[in-house]
């Protein structure tokens, strides 16, 4: 009994010492290959995935982002929407929720191909040696609401389409402006999304808007870490469902020195992670659960990721010194 406990402790210590940056880099590559090229290996994980495994990536995808079928379902004619289809919508939402609660927002930080691409763009910028930009506090507070606005529009516009208020050319509205629609299929050689559709005015406006957002995405994620995640309606939807999630980011405020190291490394620039010492479930709506905060916290057990209540990755002084020390030696 005792031997197994010490062995478990040894495993935990090893995990807590892990070079998270490296681990995450490779994990993201594997996830990226799986979800962008998995289709070629006949992998199909359904169409209720809680991250941007883009459905427009027709050949390579190993599953479809839930937002596409959701918008599709919501844009059905009203008589059907409020009868037969409502059951399908509910079961779809349930499946999505089941997927989501496994990893919580960990889907964003570790799996989402669009998130991974942003991290690669960030890595490129870092390579070149260009500093990143941040939002000021007031900008942050304003912009953080955008994702909820997009979520609301993403639900209301398809409903309007189904009710005949809008043209079918605006459906699915979010997909049309989502950079993943253009960027991810391009990885399997399908660049057909990089077009302007001149078939109608609405289609023209929507496709031009999509191109514009993709262009902004490329520039934005070059100068700001995880630029798009800040506006992602999926992220907003995640947060609304995050209560029962299994993977959790927890903070022990008593041990926190508010040194701000976690805030310092946060890709999203979430101040609460450092300053809030009363909330236990510290994950906010902007969080991507990349766990960089945990890896850069020098206080033992202050921040931790737990799965179903079991700690799986904890902040330790030893791990911090090892990781930061490695950063210091790097490039010497």
């Amino acid at each position: 009994m005792k031997a197994s406990n010490t062995r478990l402790q040894a495993v935990r210590d090893a995990v807590n010492r892990v070079d998270l940056k490296n681990f995450r880099f490779w994990f993201q590559i594997v996830a990226f290959v799986l979800f962008v090229y998995g289709g070629y290996f006949a992998i199909d994980l359904g169409s209720r995935l809680p991250f941007f495994s883009c459905g427009y990536n027709d050949e390579g995808r190993a599953g479809i982002c839930y937002l596409l079928p959701l918008q599709h379902q919501l844009s059905q004619p009203w008589p059907r929407l409020f009868s037969l289809a409502s059951i399908a919508i509910l079961t779809g939402f349930l499946t999505f929720t089941l997927w989501f609660i496994v990893l919580n927002k960990g889907w964003c930080g570790y799996i989402c191909p669009l998130g991974t691409i942003q991290d690669w763009i960030t890595a490129l910028r870092r390579r070149i040696g260009i500093r990143y930009s941040t939002y000021s506090e007031s900008q942050f507070e304003q912009l953080t609401k955008v994702k909820y606005l997009l979520l609301a529009l993403m639900i209301l516009i398809p409903l309007g389409v189904g009710g005949g208020l809008f043209s079918h050319d605006v459906s699915p509205p979010f997909c049309l402006i989502c950079p993943a629609r253009m960027v991810l299929p391009a990885f399997t050689g399908d660049v057909s999304q990089f077009t302007i559709d001149f078939s109608s005015k609405t289609a023209m406006v929507m496709t031009a808007l999509g191109i514009a957002v993709t262009a902004l995405f490329l520039v934005g994620s070059f100068v700001r870490k995880r630029f798009f995640c800040f506006f992602c309606p999926m992220s907003a939807l995640h947060y609304l469902l995050s209560k029962p999630a299994l993977l959790k980011l927890k903070k022990d405020g008593n041990k926190c020195t508010r040194c701000g190291d976690c805030y310092r490394v946060c890709d999203m620039g979430i101040k609460e992670i450092a300053d809030d010492v009363t909330t236990v479930n510290i994950m906010t709506d902007d969080c991507t659960m990349c766990l960089k905060c945990v890896s850069s916290c020098p206080e033992n057990g202050t921040l931790k990721a737990t799965f179903a209540g079991i700690p799986i990755f904890e902040s330790t002084e030893e791990g911090f010194i090892k990781r930061m020390g490695k950063g210091l030696q790097h490039g010497k």
């Binding site: 040194c259 190291d261 805030y263 010194i321 930061m324 790097h330």
Partner: peptide, 20 residues
């Protein structure tokens, strides 16, 4: 209290130091 740096670039290092 120890300094955490995300990107080992001059600007980020200086700001990280300031935070610490």
């Amino acid at each position: 209290d120890m300094t955490a740096v995300d990107e080992w670039l001059v600007n980020d290092m200086v700001d990280s130091l300031a935070d610490k």
